[in-house]
Amino acid sequence: MATIARLSRRLLPRTLSTSLPGRAFSAEAAQSAENPSPPAPIIRESPDRVKWDYRGQRKIIPLGQWAPKIAVDAYVAPNVVLAGQVVVYDGASVWNGAVLRGDLNKISIGFCSNVQERCVVHAAWSSPTGLPAETLIERFVTVGAYSLLRSCTIEPECIIGQHSILMEGSLVETHSILEAGSVVPPGRRIPSGELWAGNPAKFVRALTHEETLEIPKLAVAINDLSRSYCPEFLPYSTIYLEVEKLKKSFGISI
């Protein structure tokens, strides 16, 4: 029965289904009553969708004159997106699912730093502190998984915990640690040699000398790990074999 219902829905013209969100919105507006929003615009689908769909994501996306730069011995995972002014310096590693988008300002990942899984690094057009709004990650910095960095400066030898959020203009000074899940509000400065945590981030304690010595060791350990990932990738992918096989099976001359 459900299948018949679905089939009959499928037979309806697409124009009807496109007007659906509009109807849903007007119902929503009627609910809130005091500020009725105008009906949603009618969606017109692109006729050449195939041109941009089904093609996969490029790793490096140059925007205008700016092309991302990756040092030869840096490791950038295959499903990372680097767009615009992004520089990944030697020994740095960017792990799977991260997005580094330097479309408005510059992003740099310094020597032996690492940006872990599914991080988003972005740079705003301007920062509330009045300093340059570029995102600068310096040497021996570890940025944990799922972190969000926007126009912040991280000085050498820091650890940013997993799931932490750094907003515009925040500054993490050298030898400091941000605990996992901390949220740094815009323009906040985390002084040198301190441990901060929480939402919004608060001072927890000062770090001991031994702990600060551990910070670069962690970055180096992750750098060593990325060394074992690098040789797994051939200079060229073997995807052309698949394409040639397909072309042969369809009788297209190569």
Binding site: I43, S46, R55, Q57
Partner: peptide, 29 residues
């Protein structure tokens, strides 16, 4: 052995298909 990527930006579930305007930007990933 690498296979062609099977990722689909827009994927329908039987009759439920996404509708994207031609002026909208949807990243390939």
């Amino acid at each position: 052995q690498e296979q062609l990527s099977r990722h689909r930006t827009l994927m329908n579930l039987f009759d439920k298909a996404p509708v994207v305007d031609k002026n909208a930007f949807v990243a390939p990933s």
